[in-house]
Design a protein around this nucleic acid. Structure first.
Length: 296
DNA sequence: CTGGTCTCCTGATCGC
DNA sequence: TGCGATCAGGAGACCA
């Protein structure tokens, strides 16, 4: 469910709790939620369930490491330890990654991993509990032994959508004969856009979701790149969209859903022309658009 | 290589 | 109140 703005807000809200702190203990409650390098399961959920997933150790959850950075690329969040180990968190549709209020123990269902975060060196007693929960289990954790391994993994992602340039977007879309909506959802072309913000960016730039990506002319690509950046930046500023489950690293909801102009508004009037918005299915995802304002 | 389809999973909601 | 059908913010596997 979370897209780039929700992941970025999670990153920002967790930083004060995690940067410079040491993980005193880590526990994996569901082995198949963690993927190790060279894992034959390869991230395939079906294979993961066969129980062939590699044996996970606490060190793979960064136990005893000191957290030096919280990085993000697209919808992926990386916890980087001072010794170079990395744990990537993917939230999938229903994932949440948060710290509990001081002194509280986790009670929620579907918690798959938890970490005891030590206090500062003056008072190293456990500070807070960090939790990864994901009811639908479409998300997961992925361990990398070095930041070089993380960089190699992230090479498979397109440029980050929050700062995508018109020329980078043109390059990505030139390779896709698919509908533009489908191309925007492809993380290998551009990283971070999901179903909500794809619809919002297409609406703001006046591009029909079915317009062939590789046929878009430069002025429209410029407008689309600008719309993607603006829609995402606004959503980040509003703390992400909480449609139902989403909460940031402090369990706080966002308010960006109030700024959405098309997503989930099928049948309601277009904010620009007042005619009814329509929806259809593109790339297996419900797509809402204005048939008048968005042209092929 | 590309693109379309299927699949994984739980839970909320809606119509009967 | 219960129950089945439908839908949901994602993305990897598989196939033509």
């Amino acid at each position: 469910m979370p897209e780039l703005p929700e992941v970025e807000q999670t990153r920002r809200s967790l930083e004060p709790h995690l940067l410079g702190r040491t993980i005193a203990a880590a526990e994996l409650l569901r082995r198949d939620m963690l993927i190790l390098p060279n894992d034959p399961a390869g991230g395939n959920a079906r294979h993961r369930r066969t129980g062939r997933a590699a044996r996970a150790a606490p060190e793979h959850l960064l136990e005893s490491a000191t957290i030096s950075q919280m990085r993000r690329r697209g919808k992926q969040l990386a916890i980087v330890a001072a010794d170079g180990r990395v744990l990537v968190v993917q939230l999938g549709m229903s994932g949440q990654f948060f710290v509990l209020p001081r002194g509280e123990a986790p009670t929620a269902t579907h918690i798959h991993a938890r970490w005891a975060i030590a206090g500062r060196s003056r008072n190293p007693a456990p500070h807070r509990i960090l939790v990864f929960r994901d009811p639908r289990r479409f998300g997961g954790l992925r361990f990398f032994p070095t930041t070089a391994a993380l960089d190699a993994h992230w090479e498979s992602l397109g440029p980050d959508a929050l700062s995508i340039s018109a020329s980078d977007l043109a390059g990505a879309l030139s390779r896709a004969s698919r509908p533009t909506k489908a191309a925007l959802l492809d993380q290998g072309l551009i990283a971070g856009v999901g179903n909500i913000y794809a619809d919002e960016a297409l609406f703001r730039s006046g591009i029909h979701p079915l317009a062939r990506a590789s046929r878009l002319r430069a002025p429209r690509i410029d407008a689309l790149a600008e719309a993607i950046r603006a829609v995402l930046a606004q959503a980040v500023a509003l703390g992400g969209s909480t449609l139902r489950d989403y909460r940031d690293g402090s369990m706080s909801p966002g308010t960006a859903q109030t700024a959405l102009e098309v997503y989930s508004r099928s049948g309601q009037p277009c904010t620009r022309c007042r005619r009814a918005l329509r929806s259809m299915t593109v790339a297996q995802r419900t797509t809402t658009f204005c048939p008048t304002c968005q042209v092929r």
